[in-house]
Design a protein around this nucleic acid. Structure first.
Lengths: 106, 106
DNA sequence: TAGTTATATCAATCTATATTGATATATACT
DNA sequence: AGTATATATCAATATAGATTGATATAACTA
């Protein structure tokens, strides 16, 4: 039987710290909306701020936070910068989260 | 093919608000630790604050937040109050979260 | 080169909320 | 009744981080 992680173990403490970091980043309406938009495909910054009706600099700021943590990636295309969700990273984090919340999560 | 939820739809906006509430509650080290402890079984308040080395009133406060949002339940046993994770509610919230992060999440 | 569009950065302010200290309530025991 | 233990509540403070406004950088166009 697979052992459920417990917060008293060293390794799990590290995982918990990472999970908290991940959660703090996504527990923000604007950022979750951005991720939700990007999960359906690549978008430039102007797409995002017009679509979500928020100031351009704020979007850039949130994109930086998301990118610094590896939840999205970007590539340049002329003057535009196109952002995409990093699906694998996101999935890894959500699975780690489940370990802390659900007994014997896979 | 199942349609992925999009943040521009009314119903999804409501779901997003709920998901943000859920995330704000669990994106807190002390609270995630409490949930992690409770997921492995019932515990009284003194168990929790001694185990997690945090002040009693702070634990009570966090337990109230978790209970008010339906993530845990409680029952009295003499002077003690025993708390348990509400596994079904937690699972529902994590599944909703996946819809916002992962394309075609089940 | 000058102008325009797209994006990023920085400092200052605002806001939400975690934490603390003091105290209240509730139950059990002698 | 009086004391001890367990839990909850409340007001005050501390703090992290979201938002704003101004400005910088970079690339394309005429």
């Amino acid at each position: 039987m697979k052992k459920a992680p417990c917060c008293t173990h060293k390794k799990t403490n590290k995982d918990l710290t990472h999970t908290i970091e991940f959660l703090k980043i996504i527990s923000q309406e604007q950022r979750l909306k951005i991720l939700c938009l990007l999960k359906n495909g690549e978008h430039c910054v102007c797409d995002i701020w017009q679509h979500l009706d928020m100031p351009q600099n704020l979007v850039s700021h949130h994109l930086k936070v998301l990118k610094d943590y590896g939840l999205i990636t970007s590539r340049k295309d002329g003057t535009k910068v196109l952002y995409t969700i990093h699906e694998k990273a996101v999935t890894q984090h959500t699975q780690l989260l489940n370990h802390f919340l659900i007994p014997y999560a896979n």
